[in-house]
Nucleic acid binder design. Structure first.
Length: 745
DNA sequence: GAGCGGCCTTTTTTT
DNA sequence: AAGGCCGCTC
């Protein structure tokens, strides 16, 4: 990184000078001022690539080395675990001293830690479970079913879930909320919410929001606890401040109230988490809540070319509610940004592959120099296939998250029950896995009984003989299950976790069952479970003092980006959101048309902003040298030739800085293509593009099923399916990949 | 009455 | 890829 050396050193003692040389050497004037300001609140507005992380790490180093602050008096909030680890490493490198005791992690991780210690005061026990999205949803579904009074068709569990989440993140009461968002809160929501709260507590479980909400409750109800932590955290540092929500902000205000030494670092232009409650007002109003605050502005970019910065600025400047600023850089102009206008995702992908290949040939780049960004994970499929065919190494970050896979969740559910037997959601998962002949109906009977008797589901299972409506064979199955769990509950205290888990998996026969299945899918599941066992062992090896409880918490709060291995020589496929904080020499942003501007419109609507805040992700400046944008609809409907978003995009952008590649866009509309390809046999196995040519209404001949008419075409990549109405057989669904269709008209 | 298997739909983004 | 829904079977 080409940082500017500091020339006009401040006057001071020799000792101070020496310290400055070692510690503050790599900072520019404004960065240095921001680092040295540690007493009192300060807001550091740091544009993309302006050395935000550098300032934070130096500040921590400065506090420990120069201010002689014990590490345990510093609390640093990062956005991901990965960022926390990197920051920790960098501080260690910087000061070459001991940073043990430093609190650094995500909001959720830091407050989970505080709650583990103090939650008994709130009626939870230390081994509380953390429910992920699907656990939360299961609970809400169970409640809706249970309440029965709601016409099931009128309430969507997902809708209720997202509303509850939104309410929690905003940290307001129903009544306050109703005033602002009329019609948002209704009786059914109120009812489900109150049951949801109760059931979570019954299960000794918290959702993500509870980790913050219960911390506030703890601090409010027990001022002594608050005082303890206020005193402990003399210095608060917050990264990615623009993406904090109201709840997080309220916590920060509480914790910083005593010493008021709070440093927040953020950039309103990089706020991309409003959909999960991030409140841009936190940054705009920081000055009001901390009137004595000092503001620093970091506007020199060290990362990107001038052209990339200018393009980013020409788009971002159209946003409303924005603090005015413009980044500048000493870097070269660089090449023009390339905008590819493609007909569909296949053409878009071919373009990307061509560019990667030529960059490697002409500029000796490695695979790891490239990132392909998209907005939704499903978009990776087409790209993945094409990269595979071209022999380009790639890694997908995210997608179906490892810890969200069914087999992994199943195994983890056993562990969660062993840690916290009150966890009824995990019990529900495993009661019939492996199959014991106990279905949903039986489980719900047991659940109902537990609610009646006010005991946990686990306790109710132990008393299965008291539940009349359950047949003898089912009682038998449940008793065997209870016996198994109790056996492992005992083993848990006598053997190590490293031994316990393989024994349990073996006892359940999970791997041998999957082996018997023999499918490719089952094989993958086996691999995943092995991978899980390996990761547990690694965790134990690295943290011998930690327990199974700690492992489960770690898993619950992990994110995909945390596992990104920068050393692999592979192209990174990643969502725009996950890519936050990463940088690559060459970046492709795909699906421009589908993804970005419509999203902004929707968010503006949902969050009640008066005006549309057009979020063009400034993440684009994560590109160091070259930026390729591409506009192709991810799932373009057959007759949709619109390019509305792109033309609007073009209106906003400074056209002298971009080069538009619209090659085949005009002369190959879908219709003309069809005529060209009529009567040709399409080799489905080896051509992705051909699958795109199948359109509803086409008459086709299948080698075995005869002729038929395509009703619709669905899916992408390997998954493309055609719904075909055959003359003799009726409708069939054909996996296009595995057959040869002859197009007749 | 319950469980189970097959078929269909649906999926932003994440701690 | 996984959950919802439906119809089949015990």
């Amino acid at each position: 990184m080409n940082c500017v050396e500091q020339s006009n050193e401040t006057k001071g003692s020799m000792a101070q000078k020496r310290d400055n040389i070692t510690l503050l050497r790599n900072l520019n004037a404004e960065q240095r001022k921001a680092v040295e300001h540690v007493d009192g609140p300060n807001l550091i507005l740091a544009g993309a690539g302006s050395g935000k992380t550098r300032v934070l790490t130096h500040k921590i180093g400065y506090l420990i080395e120069r201010k002689k602050s014990p590490p345990q008096n510093i609390l640093a909030m990062t956005f991901t675990n990965k960022a926390a680890n990197e920051m920790k490493e960098r501080v260690v490198q910087l000061i070459k001293g001991d940073i043990r005791g430093l609190w650094i992690g995500t909001f959720h991780a830091n407050f989970a830690r505080i709650l583990r210690k103090n939650c008994e005061k709130l009626g939870y026990s230390y081994n509380f479970a953390i429910y992920d999205e699907s656990d939360q949803l299961s609970l809400i579904k169970a409640i809706i079913k249970d309440l029965d009074i709601l016409p099931a068709s009128k309430v969507s569990p997902k809708g209720i879930h997202s509303k509850i989440k939104f309410l929690k993140n905003a940290n307001v009461t129903f009544d306050e909320f109703e005033k602002i968002y009329q019609g948002y809160v209704d009786e059914s929501l109120r009812l489900v919410y109150s049951h949801y709260t109760k059931r979570l507590k019954d299960n000794n479980a918290m959702d993500f929001e509870d980790l913050l909400l219960k911390s506030i409750e703890l601090f409010t109800l027990f001022p002594a606890v608050l005082a303890y932590y206020q005193n402990m955290f003399r210095y608060l540092l917050v990264d990615e401040y623009q993406d904090t929500n109201r709840l997080q902000y309220d916590l920060l205000k509480l914790l910083s109230a005593q010493y008021r030494n709070i440093s927040v670092v953020g950039d309103d232009d990089q706020s991309i988490y409003q959909w999960r409650g991030a409140d841009i007002r936190n940054i705009l109003e920081f000055e009001k809540d901390f009137p004595e605050c000092t503001i620093f502005r970091l506007e020199q970019n060290y990362r990107s070319t001038t052209n990339i910065l200018k393009v980013a600025h020409s788009i971002i400047s159209h946003n409303v509610h924005r603090m005015d600023k413009e980044l500048w850089t000493k870097n070269d102009c660089g090449e023009k940004i390339c905008l590819k206008i493609a007909t569909d995702a296949y053409e878009e992908t071919n373009f990307i592959i061509q560019k990667i290949e030529s960059e490697i040939q002409l500029n000796q780049r490695n695979f790891s120099d490239f990132a392909i960004l998209y907005r939704i994970n499903a978009q990776s499929r087409v790209i993945e296939m094409a990269l595979k065919n071209s022999g380009i190494n790639y890694v997908i970050i995210g997608g179906v998250r490892f810890y969200a896979r069914k087999e992994i969740k199943d195994v983890l559910a056993y562990l969660k029950v062993l840690v916290n037997p009150k966890d009824s959601i995990s019990l529900r998962r495993i009661i019939n896995y492996p199959q014991r002949g106990i279905g949903a109906a039986t489980f719900e009977k047991i659940e109902k009984y537990s609610l009646q008797k006010n005991i946990s589901v686990f306790e109710a299972m132990k008393k299965i003989n008291e539940i009349d409506s359950i047949s003898q064979t089912k009682r038998q199955g449940i008793s065997e299950f209870i016996y198994l769990i109790e056996k492992y509950l005992q083993l848990k205290s006598s053997i190590s976790t490293g031994e316990l888990i393989p024994a349990l998996i073996d006892d359940l026969g999970i791997l041998s069952d999957l082996k018997k299945e023999g499918t490719h899918e089952a094989y993958n599941r086996i691999e995943n479970i092995r991978e899980l066992m390996f990761s547990i062992n690694e965790f134990i090896k690295q943290n011998p003092e930690l327990t199974l409880e700690n492992y489960l918490e770690n898993v619950a709060l992990i994110s995909d980006i945390d596992s990104l291995d920068n050393k692999a020589n592979a192209v990174s496929l990643i969502t725009l959101h996950s890519a936050k904080g990463l940088e690559f020499p060459v970046v492709f942003i795909t699906g421009l048309e589908e993804g970005l501007l419509p999203l902004a419109r929707q968010m503006a609507y949902e969050h009640g902003l008066e005006e549309e805040r057009r979020l063009f992700y400034v993440g684009v400046t994560r590109a160091k040298e070259k930026l390729y944008l591409s506009a192709a609809k991810f799932r373009r409907q057959p007759n949709d030739n619109s390019n509305g978003s792109v033309s609007r995009f073009l209106n906003e952008i400074d056209k002298s800085l971009i080069e538009i590649d619209r090659n085949s866009y005009h002369h190959a509309s879908p219709a003309s293509r069809d005529t060209q390809t009529a009567k040709s046999i399409i080799e489905m196995e080896n051509s992705n593009q051909s699958t795109a040519r199948l359109k509803p209404g086409m008459l086709v001949r299948h080698p075995r099923f005869g002729t038929g008419v395509i009703r619709k075409v669905d899916g992408i990549g390997e998954e493309v399916k055609a719904y075909i109405l055959f003359e003799e057989l009726g409708e069939k669904i054909i996996k296009v990949k595995f057959c040869k269709l002859e197009i007749l008209s």
